[in-house]
Design a protein around this nucleic acid. Structure first.
Lengths: 216, 216
DNA sequence: GCTTGACATGCAAATAATTCTCAAATACAT
DNA sequence: ATGTATTTGAGAATTATTTGCATGTCAAGC
């Protein structure tokens, strides 16, 4: 019934690139790599072919933990670990096979598949986290700690604080920025979370060194 | 450190609705249910609160099989089955616990979590599939078989086939529809997949009864 | 009793990942 | 070589989820 799989240039490249890498890349990581050899490929083609190849059993699609799908050059059944920080995926071997489900508890399901995943910190991320804690660093370079950029309103408030030599209350800030009073406290909260503002005295706010840097 | 969780009306409703149901609903299923009691809630609020409640350990977020997240009223650690057809999720009990990973094969990961999922057909879908095969039905009511609606071009081609008393080749179809010859084969393929067209003789196509119905 | 700060909410718009549509290009069997 | 079927590229569309912002609520402090 089924015809032989037609081997197009792009299909071949995708399969080849996946097998060569021996990692568990996402569709777009693979797309970036393929593009170097074949600049006109479309991301859709990569998705389509990964789908087709995994339907044909030549590779395996990994649907791990609600994030991006990843693809495995090895279609044999085996289990995986993934890093909760950087999402990297690796193979893992169990000491013994996973037991069958108890027949009385399958709820009438006709079971056809099984997946076991472990999660944790990969060596790199584990090391990084240790350094982090011991030095008490919270730098911009840590993706999980710096929430990133300022909104327009936040920038305005932060600028106003930078201009003032001492800590301000929210009324002064409202006057200085022209924003509504209610608005101010939201922005302050956000800025505090980012570490750009602190409150030396109750109800008074000041810009931090980090905040000054962020204003650039 | 951590403050007590503030119990707002909507938060309470969400938790309550989840616990009452004893199913494993998605955020938007829950949203639909909540809306009946509190018509002005926002979907974002439901998402936000599910996130907060699961961070607080009162419920559990399930990230199964690359699809929509589902939420579990029971935060205790237990495993799940899901239906590959209707995506329904149920609890499942293993005959014995999953073995630890072999220390030499953790690849240096510091493992903190484990997830076991089974997949298969739920009782409803299994029954449906049996009927389906034995009666040879491929009706519109089966979500996995009917890909749905016609594009404009497909409708045109299908109409042309309906007008002809016998099977046509693609040149005739091109002439009848005014579409380019190259276009025809694409449309035919799509129509065949949907079961609206078949090919009694190589390179000749005819409309099926289903196809006639689809034209309406 | 009024103000403030922390936290929540509704709404709209943004984002991320993936899938679909259609015309044009390719591959393959003949 | 030719005709048909399959595949591609480009971009639009979809789906699931998250974010920004204005506004609202509530308890604690003056």
């Amino acid at each position: 019934m089924d015809k032989l799989l037609r081997m197009t240039h792009q299909r071949e490249l995708i399969l080849d690139e996946l097998r060569r890498g021996k990692t568990h890349p996402t569709a777009d990581e693979l797309y970036e790599r393929i593009k170097k050899k074949l600049p006109r490929v479309s991301l859709a083609t990569v998705y389509r072919n990964l789908e087709i190849l995994s339907a044909a059993g030549l590779i395996k699609k990994l649907e791990i933990s609600g994030r991006q799908k990843r693809f495995d050059w090895d279609p044999e059944n085996h289990d995986h670990v993934y890093c909760i920080q950087c999402q990297r995926v690796d193979n893992i071997t169990l000491a013994a096979p996973v037991p069958q489900v108890e027949a009385t508890h399958t709820q009438g399901y006709r079971i056809t598949g099984r997946r076991v995943e472990f999660s944790g910190l990969c060596p790199n991320c584990a090391r990084q986290q240790e350094n982090h804690q011991s030095k008490g660093e919270h730098s911009m370079s840590c993706p999980s700690c710096s929430a990133g950029k300022l909104s327009d309103n936040q920038r305005q408030v932060l600028q106003a604080l930078a201009n003032s030599s001492e800590a301000c209350g929210s009324k002064e800030l409202a006057a200085a920025t022209g924003l509504e009073a209610k608005q101010i406290s939201c922005q302050i909260t956000a800025l505090k979370n980012k570490g750009y503002v602190d409150s030396p005295v109750r109800c008074k706010y000041a810009i931090t060194d980090q905040g000054k840097q962020a204003l650039g």
